[in-house]
């Protein structure tokens, strides 16, 4: 633990030290620094966040860790980009069957930077799916799914499925010919699952035909239900990564310390 200046010495809690007169050489800089430090100290004294941050950030990593290990973070940043751009797209989007297309046209053609932000969201979704598969391939080929990390693999697979569900529900939202027919086909594919399929497609459409509330339903799933679950799952995924540590690449040989080595003569 870092020493907390406000609790050191014999001063009662909450009183301020009056001794730190800034040196005349760089008074401005020192004052800024002091404000920053004391703010962080104030927060840390009440939350102990720095311990958690240190636990998360300063982990031991194995020899041989390389650029392939950044694919998970890359996927997470793709998700963050989708979340941020999505929130702002929602400010202009209207999830009604008669007005959705027009609202997308407006936000693409008229809104300042609208085309750019929508483009990031549209292409970013593809980038996220590609990254998640690359991350999965890295985990598979490096054997990083093995004991004790099986549960993290399972969470990762759930995240993959949720990401694909995001792609499916998001595809309908521009509400042009392509989205409408792709969703018609996609819902029919869901319906081909035996026994539950017909009920699942009724659930997705909110009825036996593509109806008045289908679009709103897809919108709610896309922007409220799934992002919440994905964020929670990413939290669990990261917690397990920090707790269990990462694996060395398979080409790095384990080296045991000499005193632990058994004589195998």
């Amino acid at each position: 633990m870092a020493k907390l200046p406000t609790t050191s010495g014999t001063r009662p809690r909450g009183t301020r030290a009056e001794t730190t007169e800034a040196p005349a050489t760089a008074p401005q800089r020192n004052k800024l620094q002091e404000t920053g430090v004391s703010t962080i100290d104030w927060l840390d004294e009440r939350t102990s966040l720095s311990a958690g941050a240190r636990w998360m950030m300063f982990r031991k990593i194995p020899k041989g860790t390389n650029w392939f290990y950044t694919l998970g973070s890359a996927t997470m940043f793709a998700f963050l980009s989708q979340a941020v751009t999505g929130v702002f797209l929602a400010m202009y989007y209207d999830p009604s069957a008669t007005r959705a297309y027009e609202s997308v046209r407006f936000l693409t053609n008229e809104v300042f930077l609208g085309e750019f932000v929508r483009g990031m969201h549209k292409w970013g979704s593809t980038v996220m799916v590609i990254l998640i598969f690359l991350h999965m391939a890295r985990t598979f080929f490096f054997g990083a799914y093995k004991y004790p990390r099986e549960l993290n693999w399972v969470i990762g697979v759930v995240l993959l499925i949720l990401t694909l569900a995001m792609s499916f529900t998001g595809y309908l939202l521009p509400f042009d010919q392509r989205s409408y027919w792709a969703t018609t086909v996609g819902v029919a594919i869901n319906g081909t699952g035996p026994l539950v399929g017909p009920y699942l497609s009724d659930f997705l459409r909110a009825g036996p035909e593509f109806g008045a509330t289908t679009l709103a339903r897809f919108y709610a799933i896309h922007m409220l239900l799934l992002p919440g679950i994905i964020a929670a799952m990413i939290g669990a995924h990261l917690y397990l990564v920090a707790r269990l540590g990462t694996t060395a690449p398979p080409w790095i040989r384990a080296e045991s310390s000499p005193e632990l080595r058994e004589d195998s003569k």
Binding site: V187, A188, I189, G191, T192, P194, L195, G197, P198, Y199, S201, D202, G207, P208
Partner: peptide, 23 residues
């Protein structure tokens, strides 16, 4: 009773893809 596209009705299909209460 109406089924969705992709759902076979011949043979065992009519039981694998049951009719729905909505239609």
């Amino acid at each position: 009773s109406p089924r969705d596209p992709g759902q076979a009705i011949d043979g065992v299909g009519q039981y694998l893809y049951p009719s729905r209460p909505s239609i």
